[in-house]
Nucleic acid binder design. Structure first.
Length: 391
DNA sequence: ACTTTACCTTA
DNA sequence: AAGGTAAAG
């Protein structure tokens, strides 16, 4: 039986990317309710499914480490990845050179294997860089947001590295249909059960099974509503099945969703809102988190509170509920404040307001360092004073 | 354009 | 009530 990978067992089975904690914090980015598919499976180790593979991620000061698990598959696509089990293939290749004659064929095979390996490795690195959008320099954005917004600057000292994921549009859409009138812990359970019952099994790790997110056709089947009601989805069961059906029947399939990446924000939002269970909030989340609309600020009751409490934003202050107009006004307010990546900035504040991260505000490591360096400076000052008086 | 009500569960 | 949406008034 396979286990979740641990970096402390040695770096052999891992690959890495240069990436500082100010550019990415796994705990915050993966735990703030953008994706509902990641779990902390070991200290600082996060395991989840992305791009049809199972990943474990962890980080040290300047490095992002990743491990993928080989997936038994009929197509054979996954199985040539047993490479990680033994010694690095580079080594066995050089030792193979000593052998003469009949071994040349084997060497060729190994070269081929090596080629396959580097090809897959490249693919995985590309996948990961794309998922975390690592080409976007978060440090630069934080500086810009902080310069424009003192409250952001204050929060940003503690909540560094909160980054927008670039999720699969299908997964993002159907996950967020589940979020209405709901809380994160229940949503996580629902999405997990959704994948478990309708998604392809990928592998088992320490008695946990990992499944891919269900395909549109799996979600569209007429048996799905009853199935999901049994799994505790409530009234959302019908929305999920109907939205999948509608995308297949009247839009031709997943390419339609993908295609919204190149559409304008308003086009994409309005297209999504034709689906059952998709209102302004869910449509905005899908636009921001999977359709490359970085300026979108999804406005929920929570963000409305933040706008009123921390920004004295008067938009919709006379209103009882979030009307379309208030959504618009609050979104515009934050866009004006933060600029074209306003949606990314919003996720930092959203994250900082989550109950589960409140403890970070009390004894934050970074602030502690600041205090320590202040004390050090003070001590240094006293030392020189004392030295002076002694003379 | 805006408010109200019902909708499924679970905490 | 919880990170809403749809339908009716």
């Amino acid at each position: 039986m396979f286990k979740h990978a641990l970096l402390s067992a040695g770096t052999n089975a891992w690959r890495s990317l240069a990436c500082s904690r100010s550019e990415l914090r796994l705990d915050l980015t993966l735990g703030c309710g953008q994706s509902f598919r990641w779990r902390e499976t070991g200290d600082g180790h996060w395991t989840g499914v992305m791009g049809g593979r199972v990943w474990t991620l962890t980080q040290t000061d300047d490095t992002l480490w990743y491990h993928t698990y080989s997936i038994p598959s009929a197509t054979g696509e996954g199985d040539c990845r047993k490479r990680r089990a033994g010694a690095p293939i580079l080594e066995s290749k050089s030792s193979g050179k000593k052998v003469k004659g009949g071994m040349e064929v084997k060497e060729e095979e190994e070269e081929e294997l090596l080629a396959v390996r580097t090809d897959l490795d490249r693919k995985e690195e590309v996948l990961l860089r794309d998922y975390f959008q690592l080409d976007v320099k978060l440090g630069d954005l934080y500086r810009e947001w902080g310069a424009a917004d003192p409250h952001f600057k204050h929060i940003a000292n503690i909540f560094t590295g909160v980054r927008m994921l670039r999720q699969d549009p299908t997964e993002c859409l159907f996950s967020f249909i589940c979020t209405s009138n709901n809380h994160i812990s229940r949503i996580q359970g629902m999405v997990e059960r959704l994948c478990q019952s309708l998604g392809t099994l990928l592998c088992h790790l320490d008695q946990t099974s990992y499944h891919d997110f269900p395909s549109l056709s799996a979600l569209a089947d007429s048996s799905v509503e009853a199935c999901l009601r049994d799994l505790g989805f409530g009234y959302r069961a019908k929305f999920l099945q109907q939205s999948a059906r509608q995308i297949l029947d009247s839009h031709g399939g997943p390419l339609w969703l993908q295609g919204l990446r190149t559409a304008s924000y308003l086009q994409a939002r309005d297209a999504l809102r034709t689906l059952p269970g998709v209102g302004p909030k869910v449509a905005d989340c899908v636009c921001l988190m999977s359709l490359d609309k970085a300026c979108v600020v999804p406005v929920d009751t929570h963000v409305w509170q933040i706008a009123k409490r921390d920004y004295s934003c008067i938009a919709g202050s006379g209103k009882k509920s979030l009307t379309d107009k208030v959504h618009q006004e609050i979104g515009d307010f934050f866009r004006q404040l933060w600029g074209p990546y306003a949606g990314w900035a919003h996720s930092v504040l959203f994250c900082a307001d989550l109950k589960k991260f409140q403890k970070l505000k009390e004894m934050p490591s970074l602030k502690q360092e600041e205090v320590n360096s202040d004390i050090k400076a003070e001590v240094e000052g006293k030392k020189t004073k004392i030295i002076k008086t002694l003379r």
